[in-house]
Structures are given as C-alpha cells and as structure tokens.
C-alpha cells in the first residue's frame, strides 16, 4: 500500500465525491417531485395523465439507467437534442428515480384507511383540506423509509455517470488504475469514499424507520 500515493490523490476523490453528491442531490430532488406528482395523479385517478404516468413507470422501472444514459447522451444528439453531461446525468437519474419515489409515496397513500378520509369529510372539510391536513401528513411520514431507501439506491446508481465523461468516483478510480497501476490504493479509496457518502444516510434511514415503525405518532 502506497500511503504517499493515497494522500496525494485524496483531494481528487473529495472533488469526485462532491460531484457525485451534487448530481445525486439534484437528481433526488427532481425524483421526489416527479414521484409525488405521479403518485397523486394515480391516487386521484386523473384521466389521460393516469395512463401517461403508468407508461412512464413501466418504462422507467424496466430499463437500466446505463442504457437510458447511452440513449440520452449518445443517441439523442443525433436527433438534434443535445444535453450537457451534467444535464444527462440529472435527467437520467430523475427519470429513473421518479418511478421509485412514486412507488414509495403510493404505498404511503394506500396505507391510509378510507375512514380517515370519510371522517374528515364528515366534519365538513373540503377535499383539498382533507388531503392537506389529514391524508398527506400521514402518508408522507409512512413513505419516509421507502424514500430513504430510494435515496441510497439513487446515489449508488450515480456510479455509472463516468460513461458521460463526468469525473465522478468511478472515473477517478479507473483513471488511477489505468495511469499508475495503483489498483489497491485506488480501489481502497473508492470503497472508503462510497462508505463515507452512504453510511451516514443508511444509518439515519434505519434510525428513522425504527422510530416510525415502533413509535408512530405520539412519542
């Protein structure tokens, strides 16, 4: 193990991790947005949009992110639609993540008993108010474990961004292996970098999940 080498290239990894996290956060943000919209469209069974949402979910869930990215980054420019690497990364991650987030929101919404809606209506709340004060707060907190799991999943998925010529963690590791044959060092730093990124989220998620499962509201 060449410690000097490791220390020398730590900044490179930090920079790459920053890129991963940055793209991940933006992608997750849009995923949540898409997911919530899609789940509400399906919950309210809005005609036409409901069909589109259904097709989107099937397309998104049944194709690999890597293939989606190849199409976006290498395919679409030939049809005159050109996005930067960063834009492709964010579009791809959001396209993939949206359907996963929708599923998490959907299971939260479906877990709310019908009688909650009815009793809210029966004290005179309007449908919008029922959603805002009664259904959504409960559904969202039930969705949290699923949403957290999806966030971890999406950050892991960013590992393919190197194909977009983005200098993310995988890209840096592969570069160091290719240039200096420092395979052990490069891989060790790679693993540590992902652990540093993902462990805190994973621990926080399982803490949240346990709290929600065993305590519920009122503790």
């Amino acid at each position: 193990m060449d410690t000097e080498f490791i220390i020398k290239y730590i900044p490179l990894y930090v920079k790459a991790a920053g890129l991963t996290i940055g793209l991940g956060i933006v992608g997750i943000f849009f995923s949540l947005l898409i997911g919530l919209s899609v789940s509400l469209i399906q919950y309210f069974k809005i005609p036409v949009l409901k069909r589109i949402a259904g097709i989107y979910i099937e397309l998104s869930r049944n194709t690999p992110l890597l293939v989606q990215l190849f199409f976006l980054y290498f395919g679409l420019p030939k049809a005159g639609i050109r996005f930067s690497s960063q834009a492709c990364a964010i579009i791809g991650l959001s396209f993939l993540g949206g359907s996963y987030m929708a599923e998490a929101f959907r299971s939260g919404l479906n877990a709310i008993d019908k009688v909650q809606e009815e009793s809210a209506l029966s004290i005179g709340l309007k449908h919008g108010q029922v959603m805002r004060y009664v259904i959504l707060p409960q559904a969202l907190s039930l969705s949290v474990p699923g949403l957290c799991a999806n966030m971890i999943f999406l950050i892991k998925e960013t590992s393919v961004f190197s194909v977009l010529a983005l200098a993310d963690l995988m890209y840096v590791a592969k570069d160091l292996i290719g240039l200096y044959y420092k395979t052990d060092e490069a891989l060790l730093m790679l693993v540590i970098a992902y652990l540093v990124l993902l462990l805190p989220i994973s621990v926080a998620a399982s803490f949240l999940e346990r709290r929600l499962r065993y305590a519920g509201f009122g503790n």
Binding site: D113, Q116, E118, S119, P137, F217
Partner: peptide
C-alpha cells in the same frame, strides 16, 4: 364511525 377514526398524527 365504527372504526376509530381519529387522525393519528
């Protein structure tokens, strides 16, 4: 209602 319909949150 029959089932406890209080809002749990």
């Amino acid at each position: 209602f029959q089932s406890y319909d209080l809002f749990p949150h």
